[in-house]
């Protein structure tokens, strides 16, 4: 393995114009296409029915009460707490009081179905062009003899990086190239495709504005945060029961307790 000095591969300069540039341009254009496709496929979020909204807001109210209770006096807090707990136990805040205790079925819920369809459409808009282009690059640009006078027939090598790299990068930079001894600095066309796939985000930001749908990385992250669409639906009755417990254990303190001493101290610290 004495070949580590500096490999001289005579690269056809036309490779730059016929492989590197086309791949980059095609990648940018697909990104833009993907952005517009997902914009077109996006379903406008359906308006929530008022009962569902009411349920959510009452839950929010209790959460607000749990956070901001120091703002009101103990009697005012107790009054609100008891009222909320009584009503929650009777199920008055629920969107559908009759269906208490029934586990909602995500398949039968049309809103849930629609959500799933929307996510699916987004995925399709993402996956189809990606696999198409990858197939295209594989079919077109590999199996491509670039060096006429070199001693090795190197397939699909397009560009040489201007800096040295450790052999661990081989997998990343020379996908689809079966030579073991090739210097890591040579990048194959398929790898160039992957590099542009993940590295073009700033370019899309520049062309399409910062909240574009072209970059799949951010979308995948959003999906991961959302969790699976199936697991999201919990029984609202249970959520309210948990909230009742949370509310019951709160120990009240009042922000106005000793505020005058605090104020005097503060104002004396900073003389007028």
């Amino acid at each position: 393995m004495a070949a580590q000095m500096d490999q001289q591969i005579h690269r056809d300069p036309a490779l730059f114009y016929w492989i590197l540039l086309p791949i980059t341009v095609v990648m940018i254009l697909t990104g833009i296409l993907r952005h517009y496709m997902s914009t077109l496929l996006q379903t406008t979020p359906k308006r929530q029915i008022i009962e569902k909204l009411r349920e959510q807001r009452y839950l929010l109210r209790s959460q607000g009460l749990r956070v901001a209770f120091p703002q009101i006096s103990k009697s005012a807090f107790e009054k609100r707490k008891e009222w909320w707990i009584d009503n929650a136990k009777e199920g008055k805040f629920l969107a559908d009081p009759e269906a208490r205790g029934a586990k909602p079925n995500p398949i039968s819920d049309p809103a849930m179905m629609e959500n799933m369809m929307g996510a699916m459409k987004g995925n399709v808009a993402m996956m189809v062009p990606q696999s198409l282009i990858m197939g295209w690059i594989n079919a077109f640009f590999s199996g491509y003899v670039i060096s006429w006078y070199g001693n090795a027939n190197v397939y699909g090598v397009v560009v040489k990086l201007p800096f040295p790299l450790t052999p661990q990068f081989k997998q990343m930079l020379q996908a689809g190239v079966g030579t073991r001894d090739l210097d890591v600095r040579w990048v194959s066309s398929l790898s160039w495709y992957f590099l542009t796939l993940f590295g073009l985000q700033p370019v899309y930001n520049f062309i399409l504005g910062s909240n574009n749908a072209a970059a799949q990385v951010t979308q995948q992250m959003a999906q991961a945060q959302m969790g699976s669409p199936m697991g999201g639906a919990d029984n609202p009755d249970k959520i309210f029961a948990a909230e009742v417990e949370n509310l019951e254990v709160i120990e009240h303190w009042y922000i106005l307790d000793g505020v005058e001493e605090r104020l005097i101290k503060k104002l004396e610290a900073t003389p007028i």
Partner: peptide, 16 residues
């Protein structure tokens, strides 16, 4: 029992 605060002392009120 109702959790009301004690009234502020006359001194503090004067100061403020």
């Amino acid at each position: 029992s109702t959790g009301d605060l004690a009234p502020p002392s006359t001194e503090t009120v004067k100061k403020l």
